[in-house]
């Protein structure tokens, strides 16, 4: 058990035990956000700067996030070009004094799908500038390979488009990425709606999940936060425990051969 409890994963060399990264948008109030973050047990919180207009304007809200004491992962939500994300990443580095950046570069506004080509280009620029880039990407194996080759130690493929709550739409793709990039930290980012979705991602061997709407948009965000915390732990335990093989033919868990005949009688009597 002790090895399970001390189980951790790495984000650019830093170790984390909570496998739930949480977002800070769309909660009913900052107070509920703070309570949800505490309930989630998360050690990393993401925050968006794009729409605040200026660094000073968002101060009060960012201070609430800094007050959580968690590691802050700024994101570039709302950016559509390499130039925009690079500028915003530099602003994030100043505001939050961190070289971490969740790179979000939207290629299609309708389903907020990342632009894989611009994403790779921006990733290379930011890595060269000293950033630790966590790219939000699609579940395309070759894209993930290219990002890893560029130097990303963490990749964040989507489960489904942002905010849809559909869960893991393509488990085959996600499983393939896990198998082919065994040494890269993999985090499912976006598209989760239920704790069972998060649990599945961890069962597949993903190191963590990152989510926002699934908790912030729940009827009771704090309670849902508890549920996700438990689900992520369950999924991780399940992955480490290694699941039994799936079979097409039933195999009784108690062999009937060798069962004393009076026990079998008892069962029949009971039925009657």
């Amino acid at each position: 058990m002790s090895s399970l409890i001390s189980d951790s994963f790495s984000i650019y060399g830093e170790q984390f035990t909570s496998r739930l990264l949480i977002g800070s948008a769309l909660y009913p109030s900052p107070a509920i956000m703070a309570d949800s973050i505490v309930a989630s047990g998360a050690q990393v919180v993401t925050v968006s700067l794009r729409r605040q207009q200026s660094a000073a304007a968002g101060d009060d809200f960012w201070q609430l996030i800094k007050d959580t004491g968690l590691k802050v992962l700024p994101n570039t939500a709302g950016c559509h070009s390499v130039k925009e994300v690079v500028t915003l990443a530099q602003m994030c580095r100043e505001v939050f004094a961190t070289d971490w950046i969740k790179l979000e570069l939207i290629g299609d506004d309708y389903n907020l799908q990342p632009d894989p080509f611009a994403l790779l280009e921006a990733t290379k620029i930011l890595l060269a500038d000293g950033f630790k880039v966590l790219p939000y990407c699609t579940d395309d194996l070759v894209l993930c390979q290219r990002l890893a080759e560029a130097g990303c130690e963490v990749l964040m493929p989507w489960g489904a488009p942002i905010g849809t709550g559909k869960g893991l739409l393509n488990q085959y793709n996600l499983r393939t990425i896990r198998e082919r990039l065994p040494d890269t930290t993999l985090i499912v980012d976006a598209g989760l709606g239920l704790p069972s979705h998060a649990c599945q991602a961890l069962e597949l061997g993903y190191d963590a999940v990152l989510l926002n709407s699934a908790i912030a948009g729940a009827g009771c965000p704090v309670t849902m936060s508890h549920a996700f915390k438990a689900a992520v732990e369950a999924g991780r335990f399940a992955y480490r425990a290694k699941a039994m093989p799936e079979k097409d033919v039933a195999a009784p868990s108690t062999p009937t051969m060798g069962m004393p005949f009076w026990h079998q009688d008892f069962g029949i009597k009971n039925k009657n």
Binding site: P30, R51, Q52, Q53, A57, G58, D59, F61
Partner: peptide, 13 residues
């Protein structure tokens, strides 16, 4: 509804 204290003119978005 934006978590910002910027009181400047509205954005294009």
């Amino acid at each position: 509804e934006i978590e910002s204290q910027d009181h400047g003119p509205a954005t294009v978005r």
